[in-house]
């Protein structure tokens, strides 16, 4: 009985999500990007993790001239589906529109050298291959219990090594680089968590950085050039997971904080 209720509620919620997605797509087609963003973000807030939803959300942000959230959502889509060509192309176009057109921070050296082959694979592919190799490895060991066949043990060892590599790939994909994308036009980075201190350097809209540490209201970030500093969290969209909504996602027309500050100063 309970299982039946769960099944029916799952079917119903799936239908609700599909309806929301269709409404969001319709709003996008009608150039109502604010409504589209609200609906896509609603899906994300409801726990939908889907490369197409993130891709469409990135498009909606791009059309709203909000490059930071657009880049963040294209990054999310590409993390879920590395072979998503449309997301890759739109991400490049989006990055080219940013003032600095800076590249994505690179993974650690060990990952680049050990897992150079896995960047084109999705986590599902890696998991499937790992599971198959894992089963084969244990199957070979089982075979060896019944009769001694030449090279079976070596083959099993090789299969275990391969399975371990794919397991490392799954782990790496489950723990992606903690990226953040600068959303404001200029994001000052300080030496310490003190806005009255000297500015170390400035990030520009669309710059992607690594998050080294996160504290209330502050992020310790590492720029692609390797420089470390503290910046206010409000200036960034965190790529995730978890997939956070940009602070002013419901009001995309609102200018980023640093622009508002500049206006006040000039007045």
């Amino acid at each position: 009985m309970n299982a039946g209720i769960l099944y029916v509620s799952a079917i119903l919620s799936a239908t609700v999500f599909d309806v929301t997605l269709e409404r969001a797509n319709e709003a996008y087609r009608n150039d109502d990007y604010t409504e589209a963003i609200t609906l896509y973000e609603q899906l994300v807030a409801d726990g939908i993790v889907d490369s197409i939803v993130f891709y469409n959300l990135g498009n909606a942000y791009f059309r709203s001239s909000r490059l930071g959230p657009a880049i963040a959502n294209y990054e999310r889509a590409l993390h879920l589906d590395p072979n998503f060509k449309n997301a890759d192309q739109n991400l490049q176009m989006c990055v080219n529109q940013t003032p600095r057109s800076a590249g994505r921070p690179l993974p650690p050296d060990w990952e680049q050298s050990l897992l150079f082959w896995h960047y084109g694979l999705s986590i599902g592919t890696s998991a499937t291959v790992a599971a198959i190799i894992w089963i084969v490895a244990w199957g070979l060991l089982m075979l060896r219990l019944f009769r001694s066949i030449p090279y079976v043990r070596a083959s099993a060892a090789g299969a275990f090594v391969l399975a371990a590599l794919f397991a490392a790939s799954i782990w790496s994909k489950s723990h992606p680089l903690p990226l953040a994308v600068a959303e404001a036009a200029e994001v000052p980075v300080y030496f310490d968590r003190d806005t009255s201190g000297p500015v170390y350097f400035e990030l520009l809209e669309g710059d992607r950085v690594l998050i080294e540490q996160s504290e209330t209201g502050w992020l310790k970030i590492e720029a692609p050039s390797g420089e470390l500093g503290w910046a206010e969290r409000t200036g960034f969209v965190v790529v995730g997971p978890p997939y956070e909504r940009p602070p002013d996602a419901l009001d995309p027309a609102a200018p980023p904080e640093s622009q508002s500050r500049q206006t006040e100063l000039s007045l």
């Binding site: 269709e22 889907d50 192309q89 799954i170």
Partner: peptide, 18 residues
């Protein structure tokens, strides 16, 4: 930019390993 992608729905929650 390339347009949005629409498809028949099969949206479900979560993205953990099955």
């Amino acid at each position: 930019i390339l347009p949005i992608v629409t498809r028949p729905g099969n949206l479900t929650r979560g993205n953990g390993l099955p």
